[in-house]
Design a protein around this nucleic acid. Structure first.
Lengths: 150, 150
DNA sequence: TCATTCGTGTCAGTCTTCTGACACGGGTCA
DNA sequence: TGACCCGTGTCAGAAGACTGACACGAATGA
Protein backbone atom coordinates (compact mmCIF):
# COMPACT_ATOMS: atom_id res chain seq x y z
CA UNK A 1 0.00 0.00 0.00
CA UNK A 2 3.04 2.21 0.40
CA UNK A 3 6.76 1.88 0.00
CA UNK A 4 8.96 0.77 2.83
CA UNK A 5 9.71 3.25 5.58
CA UNK A 6 12.81 5.34 5.19
CA UNK A 7 13.58 6.46 8.68
CA UNK A 8 10.47 6.40 10.82
CA UNK A 9 10.66 2.65 11.09
CA UNK A 10 14.02 2.97 12.79
CA UNK A 11 13.02 5.65 15.25
CA UNK A 12 12.67 4.57 18.84
CA UNK A 13 10.48 7.58 19.49
CA UNK A 14 8.01 6.57 16.82
CA UNK A 15 8.01 3.00 18.03
CA UNK A 16 7.41 4.19 21.55
CA UNK A 17 4.39 6.11 20.37
CA UNK A 18 3.19 3.11 18.42
CA UNK A 19 3.52 0.83 21.43
CA UNK A 20 1.75 3.26 23.69
CA UNK A 21 -1.02 3.68 21.15
CA UNK A 22 -1.45 -0.08 20.78
CA UNK A 23 -1.55 -0.51 24.54
CA UNK A 24 -4.11 2.24 24.96
CA UNK A 25 -6.29 0.80 22.21
CA UNK A 26 -6.14 -2.66 23.78
CA UNK A 27 -7.00 -1.25 27.18
CA UNK A 28 -9.91 0.77 25.80
CA UNK A 29 -11.22 -2.35 24.15
CA UNK A 30 -11.42 -4.36 27.35
CA UNK A 31 -12.49 -1.38 29.46
CA UNK A 32 -15.32 -0.29 27.18
CA UNK A 33 -17.65 -3.17 28.14
CA UNK A 34 -17.16 -2.08 31.74
CA UNK A 35 -18.11 1.48 30.90
CA UNK A 36 -14.70 2.85 31.79
CA UNK A 37 -12.04 4.82 29.97
CA UNK A 38 -8.31 4.47 30.47
CA UNK A 39 -8.01 7.69 32.47
CA UNK A 40 -11.01 6.56 34.48
CA UNK A 41 -9.27 3.32 35.34
CA UNK A 42 -5.94 4.98 36.03
CA UNK A 43 -7.56 7.25 38.55
CA UNK A 44 -9.21 4.39 40.42
CA UNK A 45 -6.06 2.28 40.38
CA UNK A 46 -4.01 5.17 41.75
CA UNK A 47 -6.53 5.70 44.54
CA UNK A 48 -6.50 2.03 45.45
CA UNK A 49 -2.75 1.98 45.80
CA UNK A 50 -2.33 5.42 47.34
CA UNK A 51 -5.49 6.37 49.22
CA UNK A 52 -6.02 10.03 49.96
CA UNK A 53 -4.34 11.39 46.85
CA UNK A 54 -5.34 14.93 45.88
CA UNK A 55 -6.77 15.97 42.55
CA UNK A 56 -3.46 17.40 41.39
CA UNK A 57 -1.53 14.31 42.44
CA UNK A 58 -3.98 12.09 40.61
CA UNK A 59 -3.62 14.25 37.53
CA UNK A 60 0.14 13.87 37.54
CA UNK A 61 -0.17 10.14 38.06
CA UNK A 62 -2.57 9.74 35.17
CA UNK A 63 -0.63 12.11 32.90
CA UNK A 64 -3.41 14.62 32.39
CA UNK A 65 -3.93 18.17 33.62
CA UNK A 66 -5.51 18.78 37.00
CA UNK A 67 -8.43 20.44 35.21
CA UNK A 68 -9.17 17.26 33.29
CA UNK A 69 -8.83 15.15 36.39
CA UNK A 70 -11.18 17.45 38.23
CA UNK A 71 -13.87 16.88 35.62
CA UNK A 72 -13.39 13.15 35.96
CA UNK A 73 -13.43 13.26 39.75
CA UNK A 74 -16.68 15.19 39.78
CA UNK A 75 -18.25 12.51 37.59
CA UNK A 76 -16.85 9.73 39.77
CA UNK A 77 -18.16 11.48 42.83
CA UNK A 78 -21.61 11.79 41.28
CA UNK A 79 -21.61 8.09 40.50
CA UNK A 80 -20.53 7.27 44.02
CA UNK A 81 -17.20 5.67 43.18
CA UNK A 82 -15.09 8.10 45.17
CA UNK A 83 -15.59 10.54 48.02
CA UNK A 84 -14.04 13.87 48.79
CA UNK A 85 -14.57 15.92 51.95
CA UNK A 86 -16.66 19.04 51.47
CA UNK A 87 -14.00 21.15 53.13
CA UNK A 88 -10.25 20.76 53.03
CA UNK A 89 -8.81 19.32 56.29
CA UNK A 90 -5.66 21.32 55.67
CA UNK A 91 -4.94 23.93 53.04
CA UNK A 92 -6.99 23.52 49.90
CA UNK A 93 -6.11 19.88 49.28
CA UNK A 94 -9.11 17.56 49.10
CA UNK A 95 -7.96 13.99 49.79
CA UNK A 96 -9.91 11.52 47.65
CA UNK A 97 -10.85 7.97 48.61
CA UNK A 98 -12.47 5.01 46.92
CA UNK A 99 -15.91 3.91 48.04
CA UNK A 100 -16.72 0.18 48.28
CA UNK A 101 -18.66 0.63 45.06
CA UNK A 102 -15.64 2.15 43.36
CA UNK A 103 -13.47 -0.62 44.68
CA UNK A 104 -15.74 -3.27 43.20
CA UNK A 105 -15.72 -1.61 39.81
CA UNK A 106 -11.97 -1.35 39.97
CA UNK A 107 -11.53 -5.06 40.65
CA UNK A 108 -13.10 -6.07 37.35
CA UNK A 109 -11.16 -3.40 35.50
CA UNK A 110 -7.89 -4.47 37.07
CA UNK A 111 -8.39 -8.03 35.96
CA UNK A 112 -9.15 -6.91 32.42
CA UNK A 113 -6.16 -4.61 32.25
CA UNK A 114 -3.86 -7.18 33.73
CA UNK A 115 -4.83 -9.63 31.00
CA UNK A 116 -3.86 -7.04 28.42
CA UNK A 117 -0.49 -6.54 30.04
CA UNK A 118 0.09 -10.26 30.14
CA UNK A 119 -0.77 -10.45 26.47
CA UNK A 120 1.62 -7.62 25.72
CA UNK A 121 4.45 -9.31 27.59
CA UNK A 122 3.91 -12.70 26.00
CA UNK A 123 7.03 -13.92 24.26
CA UNK A 124 9.38 -11.87 26.39
CA UNK A 125 11.70 -13.36 28.98
CA UNK A 126 11.97 -11.97 32.47
CA UNK A 127 15.39 -10.60 31.63
CA UNK A 128 14.01 -8.82 28.59
CA UNK A 129 11.24 -7.32 30.65
CA UNK A 130 13.54 -5.95 33.30
CA UNK A 131 15.85 -4.72 30.59
CA UNK A 132 12.99 -2.86 28.97
CA UNK A 133 11.97 -1.48 32.33
CA UNK A 134 15.41 -0.10 33.01
CA UNK A 135 15.75 1.43 29.56
CA UNK A 136 12.34 3.08 29.62
CA UNK A 137 13.13 4.44 33.06
CA UNK A 138 16.34 5.90 31.69
CA UNK A 139 14.49 7.54 28.81
CA UNK A 140 11.98 9.16 31.13
CA UNK A 141 14.70 10.45 33.42
CA UNK A 142 16.73 11.84 30.54
CA UNK A 143 13.73 13.70 29.15
CA UNK A 144 12.74 15.03 32.56
CA UNK A 145 16.10 16.26 33.75
CA UNK A 146 16.61 18.19 30.55
CA UNK A 147 13.20 19.67 31.07
CA UNK A 148 14.17 20.92 34.49
CA UNK A 149 17.29 22.64 33.24
CA UNK A 150 15.30 24.31 30.49
CA UNK B 1 3.96 13.73 49.13
CA UNK B 2 2.62 10.21 48.98
CA UNK B 3 3.70 6.77 50.08
CA UNK B 4 5.76 4.56 47.85
CA UNK B 5 4.04 2.88 44.95
CA UNK B 6 2.67 -0.54 45.58
CA UNK B 7 2.35 -2.03 42.18
CA UNK B 8 2.08 0.68 39.57
CA UNK B 9 5.77 1.41 39.82
CA UNK B 10 6.51 -2.13 38.70
CA UNK B 11 4.14 -2.15 35.76
CA UNK B 12 5.72 -2.02 32.33
CA UNK B 13 2.44 -0.76 30.93
CA UNK B 14 2.41 2.19 33.26
CA UNK B 15 6.04 2.95 32.56
CA UNK B 16 5.35 2.76 28.84
CA UNK B 17 2.62 5.32 29.25
CA UNK B 18 4.90 7.48 31.35
CA UNK B 19 7.65 7.37 28.76
CA UNK B 20 5.29 8.14 25.93
CA UNK B 21 3.82 11.02 27.90
CA UNK B 22 7.24 12.44 28.68
CA UNK B 23 8.26 12.18 25.04
CA UNK B 24 5.10 13.86 23.84
CA UNK B 25 5.51 16.68 26.35
CA UNK B 26 9.12 17.21 25.31
CA UNK B 27 8.15 17.25 21.65
CA UNK B 28 5.30 19.70 22.24
CA UNK B 29 7.70 21.96 24.05
CA UNK B 30 10.12 22.25 21.13
CA UNK B 31 7.39 22.24 18.50
CA UNK B 32 5.29 24.98 20.08
CA UNK B 33 7.69 27.82 19.15
CA UNK B 34 7.38 26.61 15.55
CA UNK B 35 3.61 26.72 15.74
CA UNK B 36 3.22 22.99 15.29
CA UNK B 37 1.62 20.19 17.22
CA UNK B 38 2.90 16.63 17.43
CA UNK B 39 0.24 15.31 15.07
CA UNK B 40 1.01 18.19 12.76
CA UNK B 41 4.66 17.22 12.68
CA UNK B 42 3.92 13.52 12.34
CA UNK B 43 1.82 14.18 9.29
CA UNK B 44 4.54 16.20 7.58
CA UNK B 45 7.26 13.71 8.46
CA UNK B 46 5.16 10.86 7.10
CA UNK B 47 4.63 12.73 3.86
CA UNK B 48 8.31 13.49 3.49
CA UNK B 49 9.25 9.86 3.82
CA UNK B 50 6.34 8.39 1.92
CA UNK B 51 5.06 10.92 -0.64
CA UNK B 52 1.56 10.41 -1.96
CA UNK B 53 0.08 8.90 1.18
CA UNK B 54 -3.70 9.14 1.44
CA UNK B 55 -5.62 10.72 4.27
CA UNK B 56 -6.48 7.35 5.80
CA UNK B 57 -2.91 6.11 5.58
CA UNK B 58 -1.63 9.27 7.23
CA UNK B 59 -4.18 8.83 9.98
CA UNK B 60 -2.99 5.31 10.71
CA UNK B 61 0.62 6.45 10.67
CA UNK B 62 -0.05 9.26 13.11
CA UNK B 63 -2.32 7.12 15.32
CA UNK B 64 -5.43 9.26 14.97
CA UNK B 65 -8.73 8.72 13.19
CA UNK B 66 -9.05 9.62 9.53
CA UNK B 67 -11.59 12.27 10.50
CA UNK B 68 -9.06 14.03 12.71
CA UNK B 69 -6.40 13.77 10.06
CA UNK B 70 -8.77 15.17 7.48
CA UNK B 71 -9.32 18.30 9.57
CA UNK B 72 -5.58 18.71 9.90
CA UNK B 73 -4.99 18.16 6.18
CA UNK B 74 -7.55 20.80 5.28
CA UNK B 75 -5.74 23.28 7.49
CA UNK B 76 -2.37 22.32 6.04
CA UNK B 77 -3.79 22.69 2.57
CA UNK B 78 -5.13 26.16 3.41
CA UNK B 79 -1.73 27.17 4.70
CA UNK B 80 -0.06 25.84 1.60
CA UNK B 81 2.05 23.17 3.26
CA UNK B 82 0.56 20.25 1.34
CA UNK B 83 -1.35 19.72 -1.89
CA UNK B 84 -4.08 17.30 -2.84
CA UNK B 85 -5.54 16.84 -6.31
CA UNK B 86 -9.08 18.17 -6.69
CA UNK B 87 -10.24 14.85 -8.10
CA UNK B 88 -9.06 11.35 -7.27
CA UNK B 89 -6.81 9.83 -9.94
CA UNK B 90 -8.16 6.43 -9.04
CA UNK B 91 -10.99 5.48 -6.73
CA UNK B 92 -11.57 8.03 -3.99
CA UNK B 93 -8.02 8.16 -2.71
CA UNK B 94 -6.46 11.61 -2.76
CA UNK B 95 -2.66 11.30 -2.72
CA UNK B 96 -1.11 14.08 -0.64
CA UNK B 97 2.25 15.72 -1.21
CA UNK B 98 4.41 18.26 0.55
CA UNK B 99 4.92 21.67 -1.01
CA UNK B 100 8.35 23.34 -0.85
CA UNK B 101 6.90 25.53 1.89
CA UNK B 102 5.79 22.50 3.87
CA UNK B 103 9.17 20.93 3.36
CA UNK B 104 10.92 23.99 4.76
CA UNK B 105 8.73 24.02 7.84
CA UNK B 106 9.34 20.34 8.32
CA UNK B 107 13.11 20.76 8.24
CA UNK B 108 13.13 22.95 11.32
CA UNK B 109 10.69 20.69 13.10
CA UNK B 110 12.72 17.61 12.28
CA UNK B 111 15.84 19.14 13.74
CA UNK B 112 13.98 20.06 16.92
CA UNK B 113 12.42 16.63 17.30
CA UNK B 114 15.68 14.89 16.57
CA UNK B 115 17.33 16.79 19.40
CA UNK B 116 14.63 15.54 21.75
CA UNK B 117 15.20 11.97 20.65
CA UNK B 118 18.94 12.34 21.12
CA UNK B 119 18.29 13.68 24.60
CA UNK B 120 16.01 10.76 25.36
CA UNK B 121 18.59 8.24 24.21
CA UNK B 122 21.46 9.82 26.12
CA UNK B 123 23.06 7.35 28.48
CA UNK B 124 21.98 4.32 26.52
CA UNK B 125 24.35 2.13 24.56
CA UNK B 126 23.68 1.08 21.00
CA UNK B 127 23.01 -2.43 22.21
CA UNK B 128 20.48 -1.18 24.73
CA UNK B 129 18.73 0.84 22.07
CA UNK B 130 18.39 -2.05 19.67
CA UNK B 131 17.29 -4.25 22.55
CA UNK B 132 14.59 -1.75 23.44
CA UNK B 133 13.59 -1.56 19.80
CA UNK B 134 13.18 -5.30 19.52
CA UNK B 135 11.21 -5.56 22.75
CA UNK B 136 8.84 -2.71 21.92
CA UNK B 137 8.29 -4.26 18.51
CA UNK B 138 7.41 -7.52 20.20
CA UNK B 139 4.94 -5.80 22.50
CA UNK B 140 3.19 -4.09 19.61
CA UNK B 141 2.96 -7.32 17.66
CA UNK B 142 1.62 -9.25 20.64
CA UNK B 143 -1.07 -6.67 21.24
CA UNK B 144 -2.00 -6.51 17.58
CA UNK B 145 -2.21 -10.19 16.83
CA UNK B 146 -4.50 -10.75 19.78
CA UNK B 147 -6.62 -7.94 18.46
CA UNK B 148 -7.01 -9.66 15.14
CA UNK B 149 -8.16 -12.90 16.69
CA UNK B 150 -10.69 -11.02 18.80
C1' DT C 1 -22.47 -10.88 -14.78
C1' DC C 2 -23.97 -9.20 -10.36
C1' DA C 3 -24.00 -8.83 -5.37
C1' DT C 4 -21.28 -8.41 -1.40
C1' DT C 5 -17.56 -6.66 1.08
C1' DC C 6 -13.98 -3.50 1.96
C1' DG C 7 -11.66 0.87 2.13
C1' DT C 8 -12.07 5.58 1.40
C1' DG C 9 -13.44 10.77 1.89
C1' DT C 10 -16.52 13.59 4.15
C1' DC C 11 -20.24 15.73 7.07
C1' DA C 12 -22.29 16.48 11.65
C1' DG C 13 -22.40 16.38 16.50
C1' DT C 14 -20.36 15.34 20.97
C1' DC C 15 -16.89 14.69 24.23
C1' DT C 16 -12.53 15.02 26.27
C1' DT C 17 -8.61 17.53 27.15
C1' DC C 18 -6.11 21.50 27.02
C1' DT C 19 -4.68 26.59 27.83
C1' DG C 20 -5.38 30.72 30.45
C1' DA C 21 -6.69 32.85 34.54
C1' DC C 22 -8.15 33.69 39.32
C1' DA C 23 -8.22 33.39 44.44
C1' DC C 24 -6.73 30.94 48.40
C1' DG C 25 -3.73 28.35 52.03
C1' DG C 26 0.92 27.14 53.55
C1' DG C 27 5.77 27.21 53.76
C1' DT C 28 10.17 29.98 53.47
C1' DC C 29 13.07 33.54 54.72
C1' DA C 30 14.49 38.16 55.72
C1' DT D 1 5.88 39.78 61.82
C1' DG D 2 5.27 40.37 56.84
C1' DA D 3 6.49 39.63 51.93
C1' DC D 4 7.21 36.24 48.68
C1' DC D 5 6.77 31.95 46.20
C1' DC D 6 4.63 27.64 45.44
C1' DG D 7 1.01 24.35 45.09
C1' DT D 8 -3.80 23.83 44.97
C1' DG D 9 -8.88 23.91 43.47
C1' DT D 10 -11.80 25.93 40.30
C1' DC D 11 -14.07 28.57 36.44
C1' DA D 12 -14.41 29.74 31.51
C1' DG D 13 -13.29 29.30 26.74
C1' DA D 14 -10.94 27.04 22.83
C1' DA D 15 -8.86 23.39 20.47
C1' DG D 16 -8.33 18.74 19.37
C1' DA D 17 -9.99 14.16 18.81
C1' DC D 18 -13.59 10.93 18.73
C1' DT D 19 -18.10 8.30 17.43
C1' DG D 20 -21.71 7.73 14.16
C1' DA D 21 -23.26 7.96 9.63
C1' DC D 22 -23.46 8.41 4.58
C1' DA D 23 -22.18 7.80 -0.34
C1' DC D 24 -18.92 6.28 -3.54
C1' DG D 25 -15.29 3.36 -6.04
C1' DA D 26 -12.73 -0.95 -6.30
C1' DA D 27 -11.97 -5.71 -5.40
C1' DT D 28 -13.80 -10.15 -4.33
C1' DG D 29 -16.45 -14.30 -5.13
C1' DA D 30 -20.56 -16.83 -6.55
Amino acid sequence: MSQDGVDLDKSLGYLLKEASSALRAAMEEVLRPLGMTVTHYSCLELLAQRPGLSNSELARGAFVTRQSMNVLLQALEREGDVTRPAAAPVGKVLPTRLTPRGRRKLEKATAAVRSVEVRMLAGLTGAEQSGAFRILRSMVDSLRESDDSA
